[in-house]
Design a protein around this nucleic acid. Structure first.
Lengths: 145, 145
DNA sequence: GTATCTGCAAATTGTTTGCAGTCTA
DNA sequence: TAGACTGCAAACAATTTGCAGATAC
């Protein structure tokens, strides 16, 4: 179950109750929680955990390369533990749900040399957007917000 | 010169000195300013403009579809006036410079049906990252931050 | 003339930090 | 035991909002 926790132990990461709970809450596929959501779920398991510790721990997991930060427009950033398998994201503009997806090919190959402006290009992040089955069905107005 | 301003006038957008200056500051290609930068440049031309008005105006330009918001991790979002020609972004992880780029093909076509989870996919946003010529040359340490 | 816009200042939201006390390895 | 981690509260950064006065059309 807990791949993330396993990896962290293996790397000699100092383990405390708080850190374990944060790692447990984050573990899995298609997990993209905000710091606040992590705090809420962690608190449910360990009421004495503090917001600062959640932020500290998330920041450390990002530095370790075990968790990826996902930028969002106008909202709190999200934390994605699926750091060891390259993937992209598919976001529902209705409800904000996010899925991990795997496009065919490498997006970087789609960028011709004439469009690179002399940059040394090392990667690409793709965010697909659309409407999830639920939001399509209930045919909410297309405006996200 | 000022395509953006032209379009806004054409759409019957109420014109004030403040709004004109914001639109002028934003106009062009490869322009990706933060609200703060817009404020700074607008203030240079019109010292009495306020921060709130810059935010109000930017928000309105986004609602009108004349300007696009670009998300960044941990930093203030950027405003991109190049809303009428589909494009993607190439970011320098050294200095943060951003260029508008045009990959070949449509990124959406790269996402197989089996990876769509029943979503109705309507678009994709791609952020390429790498190092710009200057940052490659000065060979700064690869870490952004 | 009037609906809309503007500036000011205060409120919100998301995140970081300083520091004394606590705990893991 | 020592160095690392934690909680609290205060600081910060980015953005939004309420409201009285100003202004474009």
């Amino acid at each position: 179950m807990s791949d993330l926790l396993e990896r962290l132990r293996g790397r000699g990461w100092r383990m405390t109750a708080q850190r374990r709970v944060v790692a447990e809450v984050l573990d899995g596929e298609h997990v993209h929680l905000t710091a606040d959501e992590v705090l809420a779920r962690a608190t449910a398991r360990l009421p004495e955990i503090s917001r600062a510790t959640v932020y500290n721990t998330l920041g450390e997991l990002v530095s370790l390369g075990e968790v990826i930060e996902v930028a969002t427009i106008g909202r709190a950033k999200r934390y994605d533990p699926n750091a060891h398998r390259p993937h992209q994201h598919l976001t529902c503009s209705g409800c904000g749900a996010i899925r991990d997806v795997h496009p065919v090919g490498d997006p970087v190959d789609e960028l011709p040399a004439t469009e690179r402006f002399g940059f040394s290009v090392s990667g690409a992040e793709v965010t697909y957007w659309g409407r999830c089955p639920d939001c399509v069905r209930t045919s909410e107005p297309p405006a996200p917000h």
